[in-house]
Design a binder for these strands. Structure first.
Lengths: 218, 218
DNA sequence: CGGGATCCCCCGAGATACTG
DNA sequence: CAGTATCTCGGGGGATCCCG
């Protein structure tokens, strides 16, 4: 790669110069869930070489997708956040997520679910499902990752972490993906222990309708 | 890249394993405009090493995105085409194109417009513009690339090549991009020679309304 | 001539250690 | 915590060659 260019005057080649590099898509995805510290990113990107993350963040900063902000205060931590231009990539990232999820079945050996992937996965699922009816607050645990889901006036907001007092707390493993595909009904999911519930169990039907990630037809 | 995996159980990492490799996005984009021979792909991807194209096509075939078909007949040519799974990537590719086009201004030194980029660019522009009113047939020339645009019942179809007898033939250079952004009005485009017209010049207003590729706000 | 395969070189990616 | 420094290794770039 003498340089990362493609010598074509077109939008896709410009996009490819950014997202067509190793780790870029996942770095950007992690930043779509909110500003992140360097160590947050390292933790959320298992296996990334630290020097490569450093390089990528500089490239993103140079391209105007990311801003590096040194927090002044007790902790002088460094936080990376997306600019408007970076945020504008979200529809494309979500389209790619939806496509890639189509072939997601059994996890491969050693694969984990990160917090950013859970949050963005639920965001994508909300976009592909029907508009939710009842307002509610959910907390979803998959592996070590936790997401906080707010449903209000038919709008869905997903943020990382556990911010307490949900109407329903869901604890699941990788087979939660089969549930989101509709391959496992809410009743089956409970009966087979795919999901553990704490709270108003009837809300699980709402989740099944409003959060959908279909399998690729094949 | 020990392997191309990311050790995350999520759709985006699966997509990144395919799309996050050099040249992959452009290869897939070229195939979205229709089945292509090896030499067509080489011609449409300036600078791609032939061995790398060969490798990528095998990967895509192995991933089920591409089928390699040996045409039986007078010419035993080999044709590569997208499977349904490959075609399902088109919305994501178009979203990336639209995003990348946001910062397209002056062409860089040595950049060209390929046929696939013109066709897919117009396809993306049709998706972002308003629904066209009058039925019409256009032929668009930009550089050496030619696209054939059919507007019928508000639906737009764009195919490569010149299939004759258009209602309007448009010949333009890279500044056609400014026209698609709305930065240059149809009148200005004609007055400044950005577009050359042959046929029903009043149809240029229809094009301006129906084909839009906005600039990134910055 | 279309459709590749083979070669070498070099840069980018991975891993680890270390530092402000 | 937030990177930088250094090393190794494999994949990409580029040219050339090959085969039906």
């Amino acid at each position: 790669m003498a340089n990362r260019e493609y010598h074509q005057y077109c939008g896709l080649s410009r996009a490819a110069e950014v997202v067509g590099q190793r780790w870029m898509l996942l770095i950007l995805r992690d930043l779509t869930v909110g500003p992140r510290r360097y160590s947050d990113l390292v933790a959320g990107l298992p296996g990334i070489p630290t020097n490569l993350l450093s390089t990528r963040l500089k490239e993103l900063e140079g391209d105007g997708l990311v801003v590096r902000e040194v927090r002044r205060g007790a902790d002088r931590s460094v936080v990376y956040g997306l600019t408007a231009r970076g945020l504008a990539l979200m529809p494309a990232l979500d389209a790619l997520s939806l496509w890639g999820a189509g072939e997601l079945r059994e996890p491969r050996e050693g694969e984990i679910v990160t917090e950013a992937s859970l949050v963005s996965g639920l965001r994508v699922a909300a976009g592909a499902g029907s508009r939710p009816g009842r307002d509610a607050v959910f907390v979803v645990h998959v592996g070590d990752a936790t997401a906080h889901v707010l449903v209000r006036d038919g709008e869905v907001t997903v943020v990382p972490g556990d911010h307490g007092s949900p109407d329903l707390r869901i604890t699941a493993g990788p087979r939660f993906r089969d549930f989101l595909a509709g391959a496992v009904s809410p009743q089956e999911a409970v009966a087979e222990g795919i999901v553990g519930l704490e709270g108003d169990a009837s809300l699980l039907d709402d989740i099944a309708a409003a959060f959908v990630v279909p399998y690729a037809d094949s």
